[in-house]
Computed example of a mutant assay.
Amino acid sequence: MSIQIFILSKLMEDNNYPYKLKKQLSEPIPLDQLGGLTESKLYYHFDSLAKQGLIETVKIIKEEHRPDKQVFAITEKGREELPKKIYKLFENAKAISDMVVGLESIKYVDRERVVEILEKKIKNIKAHWEQISHLEKQIQIDEEHKKFAEFVSGYVSTRTEHTIYWLEELIKRIKQGDI
């Protein structure tokens, strides 16, 4: 989904073609390589978006001794669907790293709604942590497994605190307009 959001967001700015977008993704930081985005995956998502009626071919550039370049534009339906896809990305994200493309495209959605989604995530994480904490107190752990249980508990506790901290930081920065 994030690749499709990236494509639609770029087409909101200007008409474009797949190879040019891939090149933009790789400079100056090779985000395409970091994300495992190949040209074939990018073309697949362009094709998928076209089949959904979210983008359309507006021009074909013919060059001698080179394949034709299809230039795409976002459709009205694509403009309507982009915010829905961005909200869904935030709702489904398991970590902030899953939200990067949505954060990059935040100008196309209501920031307050994004904040509400993130606040709900924090609330759910805290509720889940509370539930787990109560279980930990009820379980009897024998000496053989005590050190392992302490390790796992420490890891989960630290990771949960870390996640909450960074979600709260993200919310703060969105509210301040820094993101």
Rank of each mutant, 00 (worst) to 15 (best):
L49S: 01
L25I: 13
L11T: 00
G53S: 00
I29A: 10
A127D: 14
T160I: 02
E150I: 01
I3E: 00
Q4R: 15
L8K: 00
W129Q: 06
V156C: 06
L11Y: 05
F151W: 06
S157Q: 12
S97C: 00
G78H: 02
K59T: 14
Y44P: 02
S9M: 04
H65P: 07
D98S: 14
L167I: 15
D110E: 14
I174W: 04
F148W: 13
S105L: 08
E116L: 15
E150G: 10
E169N: 07
Y19F: 08
K121R: 08
I174Q: 03
L37Y: 03
E136G: 02
Q52T: 06
E168Y: 07
Y19M: 14
L21F: 01
P28Q: 09
S97I: 01
I3V: 07
I61W: 11
N16E: 12
R66E: 04
Y19H: 09
K88M: 15
I7M: 03
Q24H: 09
D68G: 11
S105G: 15
E39G: 08
H145K: 02
A73Q: 12
L82W: 00
E161L: 14
L89I: 15
E150H: 02
L34E: 13
I117R: 00
S40T: 11
L82R: 11
S97F: 01
M12W: 02
E112H: 05
H134F: 11
Y43E: 10
E64F: 04
G53R: 03
D98M: 13
I141G: 09
P30A: 13
S26G: 10
Q52K: 12
E161I: 11
